[in-house]
């Protein structure tokens, strides 16, 4: 391991992370985000049963163990109490179907922490949101397990509303209220919009997140799905009839927009940059959902915009006074 000051020369890091002076505050933010995610977890467990609680716990524990083990192995300070690994494990578990085998959250968390975070040098150095790196890895490895969802309140396999839409089946018995409350198949932490919004409201009030990313993200997805998401193609004279509310309320959009796209490390620093980032995420999500091969695109959209973050930062950097 090179000494600390050599890491600054690492050419991979195009932008500088926020100049955080107190470790105290990073850790505080992390735990606050964790706290704000608790209602969504409770809703998930209530809807899908106790198995999802095990998935969440396994995700968190293996994230913490991996972080500690790698920090010991590379002779760095063990910093698992800062809440970042805890949050990664939690978010990863929230992005899994409720009835996955026990080793899936473990594999995802280990990959998320080891490859998604520690290989880059740990907290603040990673380019991509670690939880989403873990999810993308699981998606690429075990696509079948990652796309088999059980329905709410029973263990019968059920397609998510978005997957059903992709396959051309219209789900008429699902109402906006069902979507809002989370009474449908989906990932553990993404289904209950109500619970997620409660948590997001808390973060807003305490000032831990700003409106720039989440609102532009959700608005753009809504707008594009409204214009192009109709059942008939634009040319047929039908455009502008997309069910935008359905698109906003289903899938991982709310979870992704409020809790993952807003990750301090992997999103732009300036307000202007954050707006560009949010619009990019929203557009990519809508493009994947409407024209892509997968029914859901939130996680890939955020990952792609994570990759664009250094460039966004470079072009929106506030001019240094006097330079």
């Amino acid at each position: 391991m090179p000494p600390k000051d050599e890491i600054k020369d690492n050419r991979l890091t195009v932008s500088f992370s926020p100049h955080l002076h107190k470790d105290e505050s990073v850790s505080r933010i992390m735990w606050m985000v964790v706290l704000s995610l608790v209602p969504a977890g409770i809703a998930g467990v209530a809807i899908f049963g106790l198995n999802s609680l095990w998935v969440i716990l396994l995700g968190i524990i293996s994230a913490l163990v991996t972080e500690a083990a790698l920090q010991v192995a590379t002779k760095r300070k063990v910093s698992i109490s800062d809440g970042s690994a805890f949050l990664t494990g939690l978010l990863l578990a929230y992005n899994l179907p409720p009835d996955v085998p026990f080793w899936l959250p473990i594999a995802g968390s280990v990959f998320a922490i080891a490859i998604g975070k520690q290989i880059f040098g740990g907290l603040g150095q990673n380019i991509f949101n670690p939880a989403l790196v873990g999810r993308a890895f699981l998606m690429a490895c075990w696509p079948k397990l990652m796309t088999t969802f059980s329905g709410p309140f029973d263990a019968i396999t059920q397609a998510t509303p978005l997957a059903a839409l992709k396959e051309g089946k219209l789900i008429e018995h699902i109402s906006y209220l069902d979507l809002f409350l989370g009474k449908h198949g989906g990932c553990i932490g993404e289904v209950s919009i109500l619970a997620l919004l409660l948590g997001a409201l808390f973060l807003f009030i305490r000032g831990y997140i700003s409106w720039h990313i989440p609102f532009t993200f959700i608005f753009t997805t809504g707008l594009i799905t409204f214009i192009f998401g109709g059942t008939q193609p634009l040319g047929a004279g039908a455009g502008f009839g997309g069910d935008w509310l359905f698109h906003i309320l289903s899938g991982g959009l709310i979870l992704g927009a409020f809790f993952m796209a807003t990750d301090y490390v992997t999103s732009p620093l300036t307000r202007k940059g954050q707006i560009i980032f949010g619009i990019g995420c929203g557009a990519l999500t809508a493009v994947i959902r409407i024209w892509g091969g997968y029914p859901e695109g939130v996680s890939y959209a955020i990952l792609m915009m994570n990759a664009a973050t250094p460039i966004i930062d470079r072009y929106t950097k506030t001019r240094v006074y006097g330079a």
Partner: peptide
């Protein structure tokens, strides 16, 4: 053993080679 399909794909090759070089 449920194989992790990504390692059969090009992205898995990049991962494995990167880690081995490291």
């Amino acid at each position: 053993f449920e194989p992790a399909r990504v390692f059969g794909m090009p992205s898995g090759a990049l991962l494995v080679i990167g880690l081995l070089v490291g």
